[in-house]
Simulated assay, not measured.
Amino acid sequence: MIAEVWKCLTPALADVLSRVRAEAGAVVDLGAGSGRGVRVICDALPQAPVLAVEPSAAMRAVLLARVHEDGELRERVTVIPGDCVSVDWPDGVRAVVALNMIGHLPPEQRRALWARAARHLAPGGLLVLNVSPPFVPVEVERVRMARVIIGELEYEGWASARPTGADEITWRMEYGVLRQGRPLAGTSVEYRWWVAAEEALAAEVAEAGLVLHRVGDPELGLCVVERVEEMSTPVG
Rank of each mutant, 00 (worst) to 15 (best):
H120W: 04
L121Q: 10
A122D: 05
P123R: 02
P123V: 09
P123E: 08
P123I: 06
G125F: 10
G125D: 10
L127C: 13
L127I: 07
L129Y: 04
L129M: 15
V131K: 01
S132T: 08
S132W: 09
S132K: 02
S132R: 12
P133E: 11
P134G: 07
P137M: 01
P137S: 03
E139P: 00
E139L: 11
E139G: 00
E141N: 03
R142P: 02
M145H: 12
M145A: 15
R147I: 06
I149E: 15
I149L: 13
E152K: 09
L153V: 07
L153E: 12
G157A: 14
A159P: 00
A161K: 02
A161S: 09
R162P: 00
R162H: 04
P163Y: 09
G165Q: 07
G165D: 07
A166I: 10
A166D: 14
A166Y: 07
E168H: 14
I169S: 05
T170W: 05
T170E: 15
T170I: 08
W171S: 02
R172N: 09
R172L: 12
M173Q: 03
M173Y: 02
Y175K: 00
G176K: 00
V177E: 08
R179E: 13
Q180Y: 09
P183H: 02
L184K: 07
L184H: 03
T187I: 04
S188K: 04
S188T: 05
E190M: 08
Y191H: 12
R192M: 06
W194V: 05
W194E: 04
V195G: 02
A196R: 12
A196E: 10
A197I: 00
A197K: 12
A197N: 06
E198F: 02
E198N: 09
E199G: 02
A202I: 03
A203E: 15
E204G: 07
V205C: 13
V205W: 01
V205L: 05
A206G: 09
E207M: 09
E207Y: 02
G209A: 07
G209T: 10
V211W: 06
H213K: 05
R214S: 15
R214N: 04
R214C: 08
V215Q: 11
D217R: 13
L220F: 13
G221T: 08
L222D: 07
V225H: 03
E226V: 03
R227N: 06
R227W: 04
